[in-house]
């Protein structure tokens, strides 16, 4: 009886929809609340943040969703009065652009070579890339510091940017996509007398649009959330740190403008997400390893 009733409810799909709705709310909540908090006045948010960390079991933090008075002062603070957050934001943009441009040159070419050319050691090379993908950043950290120092690049932005150009995961992602492309595509090209370079420019790259979009979006997410690299390669240059490293400090000594900073930091990510969503869905063709 109960089983039957349950089955009827289940079949109407309301339960499914309800569960997914709940999940959506949970997932969106932190983003929406951050956005709302950015319209509180700096004084109000400072006072609110100061009520954190009390171990008094009789007191609660207020549940705040709507400001006492709608205010753009946080944005004024961040964008005009105190430029330190904005400066780190610009640093983040610089790293992201430099890394993405380099990756756009190197990574599709490497994936093309790995998926379309027959050569000795191809499988072995791919296996090495898989292994490198697994390595945590810290494993090659010290040798990299030594290399970068001897090149005179340590404590310059290049120390963060250069190693990221060759991130193994994106080579892997692109190779998987290119490997699945139909053979006919290239046979037609070769019939027309196109060489390997024209096959790359005029066939591979246009066809790979979705996976390139997906890789750009995912790589953006990495670059926008850089922590380890600036912490180790830029120890002596606080002026070069991206914003992602600094939110800890912003939280620890609240100046009241941190939520505007966080919202501004989320916005580009939101745009990238909306713009590349279709590509991510079409480009992530990772159903199995082969």
């Amino acid at each position: 009886m109960i089983k039957l009733a349950f089955r009827r409810i289940w079949e109407q799909k309301w339960l499914t929809r309800g569960l997914l709705m709940l999940l959506t709310i949970i997932i969106l909540l932190p983003v929406v609340v951050t956005f709302l908090y950015s319209f509180f006045s700096p004084e109000e948010i400072s006072a609110f943040m100061k009520t954190r960390g009390s171990a008094d079991a009789t007191k609660w933090m207020e549940i705040k969703l709507v400001p006492n008075m709608f205010s753009l002062n946080q944005y004024y603070e961040v964008l005009i009065r105190d430029m330190s957050v904005l400066k780190m934001f610009v640093n983040s943009v610089g790293y992201t652009v430099a890394i993405l441009l380099g990756q756009a040159v190197v990574i599709p070419m490497m994936a093309y070579a790995l998926s379309r050319f027959k050569f000795r050691g191809r499988e072995a090379l791919f296996f090495v890339i898989l292994l490198l993908m697994i390595l945590p950043f810290q494993v090659t950290m010290v040798p990299n510091v030594l290399t970068l120092r001897s090149l005179g690049l340590l404590n310059t932005p290049w120390a963060v940017v250069l190693p990221m150009w060759f991130t193994p995961f994106y080579i892997f992602l692109m190779r998987q996509f290119m490997l699945a492309l139909p053979k006919d595509l290239y046979e037609a090209g070769q019939m027309d007398g196109a060489g390997t370079i024209r096959c790359y420019w005029q066939i591979t790259l246009p066809v790979c649009r979705p996976v390139i979009g997906a890789a750009v979006a995912l790589s953006f997410a990495d670059c926008w959330n850089l922590v380890e690299q600036p912490m180790t390669y830029l120890t002596q240059r606080t002026d070069l740190q991206p914003l992602s490293v600094m939110f800890n400090q912003l939280a620890a000594n609240s100046k009241g403008n941190e939520f505007a900073g966080a919202t501004l930091y989320m916005l580009p990510a939101l745009f990238i997400y909306l713009y590349f969503m279709k590509d991510i869905l079409a480009g992530l063709q990772l159903t199995e390893l082969k």
Partner: peptide
Amino acid sequence: TVLMPYLMPSSAMLLIWLV
């Protein structure tokens, strides 16, 4: 919607997490 957080910088989420 579930995909959105993947692109969001978790660094910016930290504040709200602490709250």
